[in-house]
Each structure stands twice: as C-alpha cells, then as structure tokens.
C-alpha cells in the first residue's frame, strides 16, 4: 500500500485558495479511481498566516492520512518553505513561485530534488487576478508530474468554480500547463 502512495503539498498563506486547489486535484485523481485524503493546516485566521493543503493519493484506502514524506511540493509563499522542506523525499518535485518564494534552502549535498522556479503569480497577474495563482500552479504541477488527465482536471475546475470565474480559471489552468510544458524534464539536482 505504501508503494502506491503519493504525497502532495500545496503550501502558502491563508486566502491563496490552497485547499480549493488540492480539492480540484483530488477530484481529478478520484475520477481516475485513486483513493485520496486531503487535509490542511491553517492558522485561526481566514486570511494570511502559514497554510498548507496536503493530498495523499493511494490505490487502496489511504491509511495514514497526513504527509510524512512529500513527493510533490508547490510553494506559493516563502512562509511554507520551513515547515515543508524537512518532509521532502529524495528526488521530490518542487514547484516554487519566482515572486513570492524566490529563495530555497541550501540542499543537503546528498539529497537531490527536482526544483522548478516558475512565474506562477506573475502569470496570474497577467491574466487579470493574482487570486488564480493557485490554478496556474495546479496546471503546472499536472503538466510536469503527469499525475492526472488534463480533461479530468478541467472537469474538476469546472465543477468547483462559480460561473463568473470559470473562464478565468480555465485560462489560468491553461497558462499553468504552458508553463509546465516549457520546463525541461529535470533529473534531480541539489537546489
């Protein structure tokens, strides 16, 4: 059961839509028959403060539902680095926003991660709202990891978006895919 386990964290600050982002990904993965457990850590404020949303994916029922060794980490704010970095698995995939999370810790020489610095929030701002950085990140993560079908993800985005924001969110998802597809396939490197 542990072998099929995939651990994903979307980290940032409260109000960035991290939980929604993980929910959409969970929906897409569930549609492909995976079992998912989504949880979050947050501060007692609705906006601001460190927040993460974790997704555990498994072929069978997820046993331990929280993150212990991350396969994928998306960083939408530098606040999320410190609590998440120690949980990274060797060879883990890391997506960090160039603007809000420009610097990453010096890696242990022996442990290598696949780090992609991407202009997630900048793309969102170019689309008209920084608030869709979460969806840009979702597209980029899906494109680089290939963890789910694009169609399934689009369906999940449609299902969880109010009508007035649908075009914007679908554009953001496409922008994320473009960013991800432009990235070279990385061998693990020490950051």
């Amino acid at each position: 059961m542990r072998d099929s386990r995939l651990e994903i964290r979307i980290g940032g600050t409260g109000g960035q839509g991290l939980i929604l982002c993980a929910k959409m990904l969970a929906d897409a993965l569930a549609a492909a028959g995976k079992r998912v457990a989504q949880s979050q850590t947050y501060e007692p404020t609705s906006r601001g403060g460190y927040c993460n949303s974790d997704l555990i994916v498994s072929e069978g029922e997820v046993d331990f539902p929280l993150a212990t060794a991350l396969d994928c980490l998306v960083l939408l704010d530098r606040m999320a680095v410190k609590p998440s970095w120690p949980l990274l698995k060797p060879d883990a995939l890391v997506l960090a926003d160039t603007r809000l999370c420009p610097e990453l810790p010096e890696g242990n020489r022996d442990v290598k991660y696949r780090v992609h610095h991407l202009p997630l929030t900048r793309s969102a701002i170019e689309l008209g709202s920084e608030r869709v950085a979460n969806i840009v990140a979702l597209g980029a993560l899906a494109a680089i990891s290939g963890m789910c079908e694009r169609k399934a993800l689009e369906r999940a985005v449609r299902a969880d978006t109010p009508k007035s924001f649908l075009d914007l969110n679908l554009d953001a998802l496409a922008a994320g895919y473009r960013l991800g597809e432009q990235e070279p396939a990385l061998a693990a490197t020490a950051p």
């Binding site: 929910k23 969970a26 569930a30 079992r35 998912v36 457990a37 989504q38 949880s39 979050q40 997820v62 539902p65 929280l66």
Partner: peptide, 9 residues
C-alpha cells in the same frame, strides 16, 4: 479535528 476537516472520496 483531523477527521472532521479531512476530505476523502
């Protein structure tokens, strides 16, 4: 709180 706030399919 973990179980209350967790989402599972």
């Amino acid at each position: 709180e973990i179980v209350g706030h967790m989402r599972e399919n």
